[in-house]
Design a protein around this nucleic acid. Sequence first.
DNA 1: CCTACCGATCGGTAGG
DNA 2: CCTACCGATCGGTAGG
Lengths: 196, 196
Amino acid sequence: MIEPGTRRHAIDMVASELFHTNGYAATSVRDIAKALDIQAASMYAHVASKEDVLWSIVDGAATAFERRADDALGDASATDPVDRLAALVEAHVEVITADPQRSSVFVTEWRHLSPERRSAISDRRDAYEARFRTAIEDGIAVGAFGATDPALAATFLLTALNGIATWYRPDGRLSADRIADHYVDLALRSLSEDHR
Amino acid sequence: MIEPGTRRHAIDMVASELFHTNGYAATSVRDIAKALDIQAASMYAHVASKEDVLWSIVDGAATAFERRADDALGDASATDPVDRLAALVEAHVEVITADPQRSSVFVTEWRHLSPERRSAISDRRDAYEARFRTAIEDGIAVGAFGATDPALAATFLLTALNGIATWYRPDGRLSADRIADHYVDLALRSLSEDHR
DNA sequence: CCTACCGATCGGTAGG
DNA sequence: CCTACCGATCGGTAGG
């Protein structure tokens, strides 16, 4: 973990914003350094490479999603599949709205990681998505959700959820809490029994 | 419109794939030229700039979405708000699965366009999203959909829909038709009356 | 954290 | 569509 308040931490915050706005490949080490008012070469006193900066952002975001999902599923109330899915959706929205730049870099820039790191993230994403899929499967099994393709439904929900990172603004029309409430509702309804 | 079969068209197809896989900024003019077995300088006999290639891909995708939505709404059966939304969702999925690379470039790479082109695309996206929002509003007004925030619901659906461009593979487990059917279902259910 | 610098690569042009 | 080339910028290193 990187200590808040350190220069290393400031690098990640500044880089998150630049990678979010312009993308990793279109952001130069000089851009990051300029935002910190230091020389480009001085960046290398704190990081070994530009890719290491991307990695710490992506790894930090992945860890945040995993921890919040653990907490959400750890609650005693989360034995019911519907409650479990609701808790997962709420946790996911909260992680995104707490740091939309980092989240959007996680969602969109991981292809610029080295093959090893990319595949490690891919595995963690699969495990994370499996929590959603399992909650959906269990909900169908007990008749709380309508029959559907659980893997596809999980992907449907997670892409909608991740989309928040691309459009959310802290000063926007809806607060993070309201968005979370609405998305939990939309998610649960999308899995409800047939609407006809 | 660019004639299929021409070199100019081949440039767009090759560039779509490279921009989709590596991103616009991480793809060089030399990468595109190499895939076409010509020299980088020869590219400029066909295009004025790298950004022009991105523009023709993004503009082509935007036009495809607009046309298919027009067709979908032009059908006589599409006076009912629920049918209208279903037709919009189906059309959107079909445009994406017909050319996922172009669609994903449209969704993720428009920030690399010039400010004028970016704002033109932003306006067209807003108009396109308004069709979804209006169908949702009308559906709520006639009691076919449950009460919800129409703008947020439209964003929820469109981000889920656009996500298809990032994961769809023609040789995947589900055919394009099956995906469209499932997504229409998920979309309509997500807007249904309260599930409790 | 700085100055000074490196080889590689970038988008694009000139002239055929 | 090619060869030859341009100035700018890239990620990163040496040495303090």
